[in-house]
Design a protein around this nucleic acid. Structure first.
Lengths: 343, 343
DNA sequence: ATATTGAATGCAAACGTTTGAAAAAATTTC
DNA sequence: GAAATTTTTTCAAACGTTTGCATTCAATAT
């Protein structure tokens, strides 16, 4: 009843005046155990609420069935979608997910990884923090690799690193978005870029630039401003854009949040969307379908990424010694809605 | 180099022809160890990348420094804010968070709890799944309590249960929201209610009802419809509301998502917000400030809840044997924006 | 009656670490 | 140089579980 200390196999053994081995085997339905003994022990175990101490098993078998997920934040739709994807595949297999939020801090990222290794986590899913990017440090990642702990990049990656990764085709997504704006007839397309250096930002930026080039459209430096992935960070840059002598007639935001911020500013200024200004985001977050007007965006399959990343992890785990890292790039998909459909 | 098997204390002991005890003490800066021995061992350990096996320590000390977080979903703003709050307090103390998503399933919730107990998790933060509510089962929770594992309710709770809990004052938040609508002059206030049975839904509903009563406003059954916390689920009910012979002139949504769904439908119908119809949500999610018009809502301090829940856990952990559960109810706060400001 | 079989159980080691107590080694004291 | 003291190291047990091998005991076969 007031079992503050959990019941152990030894306790049960004492109760039945038998050895722990017998109890262990009885509980695991080992054939060499007498039917009656088995029944009695199992019944008693249930009665007192015995639960196997998995910690001791982890030590014995050197398997912890726990995985690390290290991400800069969990307050974005995409991140949580990825985590749900991981969860969907791995939870039924008995894995536990240890979530570590780095808040874009290098130090926290380093400490998190170290902690996960100490805990003998069997694999790590990582989306690199911005500070880590800026600093360019990566010894903490080397550590993980040396330990032969499967390391899978999700979303934000180090490009020159020999590991598996599951990412979305940001480049072509961005390209398609801008191409769409061009096809509609927008001429001065601005880009609210993400933080410099991050693969995600740069790939989308590259898609934007290359698309403009392909269609021989001028690239105007003053139409490219940085944001920080969140709504607030889009407000000032958008205001600046709209106050230009020659303002843009369309804005491609690095993600939906940013595009929604831009939408808000444009509307405040009395601009009609999409007539006066076209808008495109990125992510296809649930809200994007319900803004007014609804937001044209690029679908980014977060759940799928999580599920693919799980697959990559399992491959690596069951793979032979000389393991070749895999890169999965899922296609992104343009979702055309009202915010860009000027007729 | 190719250290597939992690280096152990024993390995180091072999290398220095000394006992594991010496190595352990050397690494922990035990004073009884010779200065030179200590230095040599520490240096070597660093060289080969030794990392303490925390699993063995967990077994020895019966402390795992891991906590369970069991929630129906992580794709809502509020849930992730709570998790970030937990993380903020507990991560620096060395705790690891094991996230379990139940997808509103009773079975998954039960299995998750059982797994966490098996893993000797030191505390569990729980937001009850809807199925569990509907079914009214709670033996799996009794289990947790019997084990004297601190159980803290966050968000969704069982009311008749002797545990600590950190929740937001939904009732008064809802009351304030409706009172505000009334003060502005709205007469026919509809409510897009959450799923029946959940404390959250019912408390907000009660706030709505009691406020109407207080101001002697008629309670119209046809103005109360159920939704499911997400945007999509608000679409049809809102359409129905607006097609009534005597449609509402304001809608109080159970959360921001629902209110945003309603906003979209209202705009599609050509209604002006807030002139033709007033709107209020709940949560103060980041997006709510940037919709057009911006959404009046009730602030729900998710991060704070997470931090308070952490405190409750720590209290219980350090508390004496006869522990009295604490209930923390944080105030919610009306945030008035454009969607309800009819002049 | 003895050997043979078979069933049921126990022993001991292992996983990696810590820690009190004992032992060994080095140093000091007289 | 022996005794006393201090410093340093080792021993052994513990945490909870599993598992190959050995052991026990009863039943059957010879």
């Amino acid at each position: 009843m007031n079992s503050s200390r959990p019941v152990t196999i030894k306790d049960i053994a004492r109760r039945f005046r038998c050895s722990p081995s017998t109890v262990s085997r009885a509980l695991n339905d080992h054939p060499a155990i007498n039917e009656d003994t088995r029944k009695n022990i199992q019944e008693y175990a249930r009665e007192v609420g015995y639960q196997r101490n998995e910690v001791s098993l982890s030590l014995l078998n050197k398997k912890t069935a726990s995985l690390g997920v290290v991400v800069p934040t969990i307050s974005n739709y995409y991140e949580t979608a990825v985590i749900e994807g991981l969860h969907t595949v791995l939870q039924p297999m008995g894995y536990t997910l240890n979530i570590c939020v780095t808040n874009e801090s290098y130090l926290l990222e380093k400490e998190s990884l170290s902690k996960l290794l100490s805990n003998r986590t069997e694999g790590i899913f990582l989306s690199v923090s911005q500070e880590t990017y800026d600093a360019g440090y990566y010894e903490h990642l080397e550590h993980v690799i040396q330990r032969k702990t499967p390391l899978i990049f999700i979303d934000r990656e180090y490009e020159d690193f020999e590991t598996s990764r599951a990412t979305v085709d940001d480049y072509h997504g961005a390209f398609a978005a801008v191409e769409h704006l061009i096809s509609i007839g927008y001429k001065q397309i601005a880009h609210l870029k993400g933080p410099n250096g991050l693969t995600v930002s740069e790939q989308r930026f590259k898609g934007y630039i290359n698309c403009l080039k392909k269609y021989n459209m001028p690239i105007r430096e003053d139409l490219i401003l940085n944001t920080n992935f969140n709504v607030e960070s889009a407000i000032l840059p958008t205001k600046r854009l709209l106050e230009l002598a020659s303002p843009p007639d369309a804005i491609f935001g690095v993600n939906d949040q940013v595009a929604i911020g831009a939408m808000r500013v444009a509307k405040d200024k009395g601009l009609r969307i999409p007539q006066d200004i076209g808008l495109v985001g990125f992510d296809n977050s649930p809200i994007s379908a319900y803004t007014f007007p609804s937001l044209t965006t690029v679908h980014r399959p977060g759940r799928k990424i999580g599920m693919e990343a799980s697959r990559l992890f399992l491959n690596q785990l069951n793979g032979s010694g000389d393991f070749a890292p895999e890169s999965i790039v899922l296609p992104s998909e343009l979702v055309i809605r009202e915010s860009s459909l000027r007729i």
